[in-house]
Amino acid sequence: MNDKPPDTHTPDNAASWAKPVDTLTVGDTPAEAINLNVQGKRVSGPLQGFGQLWQKTYRFRLRGVQTTSAELVRLWKEKLPELMPPNSRFYPSITGVKPGEVIIINATMPGVPGAISTGVMILYADDEAFTVMTPEGHPESGFNTFSAYEADGVLVAQIQSLARANDPIYEFGFRFMGGSKEQEKIWHHVLAQLGAQLGVSGAVEMEKVCVDPRLQWSRAKNVWHNALIRSTLHMPVRLARRVVIGKTGSSGTQGVDSP
């Protein structure tokens, strides 16, 4: 029997983790960003979602690039919005990719009018990796880790997601409406763009593992937070606001827009 009291020391990487929060708070965002479905939401990890749990790992070998993994991750954090495809825009806060910060995401989905507005929280960020965690209502529930490491003398940029669809509607979309393929294309694009920044082209490798094939029916009620539905329902409000702003000429940063 081991009765030693818990070690309460703070580890070296404590500052790399987001501070504990009950719900997310969004700061100022660029005027062009649609800020919906994040403020006041809880984060939602791989255990809280509905669909099958997948671990997908995307790797891009940066042959010939003479830089360090830390320098690559620094570049990745700095250029993240530029690396995203046009149908999935990231809007980090002014602070950038730092633990606890929120990135607003505006994305379009095939066959769906308008844009889905959601976001992610930076759960962890150090010199060699950063991880984002999704909020309630996001299409996926889980983590995405962006990292760099050296293997056989070659620098490798890697994205690893551990996530499941957040609710039954998203699960249907991922499985039967091409959503899963679209999601995979996004991360292929990001890695290819990162390589392009460093003058490297090549193929992105992908590994998919179904960690849990079960559906979590107790989480079907997550549909209440569905950001796609909420964004669509909010569209008339946004259009009306755009007309008013057009008449008054208001501009600048956009504050919190409650769902």
Partner: peptide, 26 residues
């Protein structure tokens, strides 16, 4: 045996909803 810091991380990531956390082995 989780330090206070990692107990907070378990709460933040909501792992504590599925893994029972106790003060000690007993």
């Amino acid at each position: 045996g989780l330090s206070e810091h990692y107990q907070q991380i378990f709460a933040l990531t909501r792992l504590n909803e599925a893994i029972g956390i106790y003060d000690d082995e007993t």
